[in-house]
Computed example of a mutant assay.
Amino acid sequence: MTDRIAVREPIDSRHPAAGPRPRPPEPWAIRGELILNCNCTVFCPCVVSLGKHPPTEGVCQAWAGVRIDEGHYGAEVLSGLNVGLLLEIPGQMARGNWKAAAFIDERASEAAFAALVRIFSGAAKGTTGLFSVLVSEFLGAERAPVVFETEGATRRLMVGKKIQGAVEPVRGADPEREIVVTNTQYWMGPDITVATATQGRVRAYGRVWDFDGRSAEICQIDWQGP
């Protein structure tokens, strides 16, 4: 004898051809630093306009690098890995229709690689979930030797021969202090260091870009989801 009431299995009303239900995203978090260099001639207007103002050149072409100091996706450790990104936006950032590609650190395990693809495609939701809405064409995700180095104030990202970039903060009246736009609502983080690229070369996915001397950003990131 038992006092438990039998409960039927939940009914799946979806079409049989729909396939299995998508796996829900795991809890995840990433802390570290992001650098970005785009084709804007002056500091990117997207930071303060939140994507409502068009890029200075009408379209946005950019590369970015992420250094993960601490990170996890569920039980999978992401700490110590790097990621490179290629972004192409046809106008105002907030209007979407982005194209994007991801270069995942070749040191990542199979599980870490899959986790980082989910995070940077927006499938993991949370901070980067907007990618799933704004990116209309995900060009691909591939393993690559992604190196993120810091030497003094200079940050470098090297993704083989595909991305070779270096950015450094723009000097202010006090050379010991960085110029920082603080307390923003920018998706990457509230405090953005104004920088410029000393090197900004992309040779990937048919793109041939050289953005030396163009706008750059440095941001401490603290992202999480879902």
Results as ranks from 00 to 15, higher is better:
residue 83 V to R: 01
residue 30 I to A: 01
residue 199 Q to I: 08
residue 43 F to T: 12
residue 49 S to N: 10
residue 87 L to K: 01
residue 211 F to W: 06
residue 157 L to T: 07
residue 211 F to P: 00
residue 197 A to R: 00
residue 184 T to K: 03
residue 178 E to F: 02
residue 105 D to S: 08
residue 169 P to Q: 10
residue 38 C to V: 02
residue 135 V to T: 08
residue 163 I to K: 14
residue 107 R to F: 13
residue 136 S to K: 13
residue 217 E to D: 07
residue 3 D to Y: 10
residue 79 S to H: 04
residue 185 Q to T: 15
residue 35 I to V: 14
residue 103 F to T: 00
residue 164 Q to Y: 10
residue 226 P to E: 11
residue 223 W to Y: 03
residue 168 E to V: 05
residue 96 G to L: 05
residue 205 Y to G: 04
residue 3 D to R: 09
residue 116 L to K: 03
residue 45 P to Q: 03
residue 83 V to T: 06
residue 137 E to A: 03
residue 204 A to R: 13
residue 214 R to S: 03
residue 3 D to A: 10
residue 45 P to S: 03
residue 112 A to R: 08
residue 148 F to W: 03
residue 16 P to T: 12
residue 160 G to E: 08
residue 76 E to N: 04
residue 30 I to P: 00
residue 151 E to T: 09
residue 200 G to A: 02
residue 52 K to S: 14
residue 120 F to A: 00
residue 106 E to A: 06
residue 214 R to C: 03
residue 176 E to P: 02
residue 7 V to Y: 15
residue 164 Q to L: 09
residue 32 G to C: 08
residue 155 R to N: 09
residue 162 K to R: 15
residue 73 Y to L: 00
residue 41 T to D: 12
residue 39 N to V: 06
residue 121 S to P: 09
residue 103 F to N: 00
residue 173 A to M: 07
residue 200 G to C: 03
residue 141 A to L: 13
residue 120 F to C: 01
residue 170 V to Q: 04
residue 7 V to W: 15
residue 190 P to I: 06
residue 122 G to V: 10
residue 89 I to A: 04
residue 114 A to P: 11
residue 43 F to C: 09
residue 22 P to A: 00
residue 37 N to F: 02
residue 3 D to L: 10
residue 16 P to V: 13
residue 85 L to I: 04
residue 24 P to K: 01
residue 118 R to W: 00
residue 91 G to K: 11
residue 92 Q to S: 14
residue 84 G to E: 05
residue 13 S to V: 15
residue 84 G to H: 08
residue 75 A to E: 15
residue 49 S to K: 06
residue 87 L to P: 04
residue 53 H to L: 08
residue 208 V to F: 13
residue 111 A to M: 06
residue 37 N to P: 00
residue 103 F to A: 01
residue 195 A to F: 13
residue 78 L to R: 00
residue 20 P to L: 12
residue 103 F to C: 00
residue 78 L to F: 00
residue 176 E to Q: 05
residue 117 V to A: 10
residue 161 K to G: 14
residue 215 S to V: 05
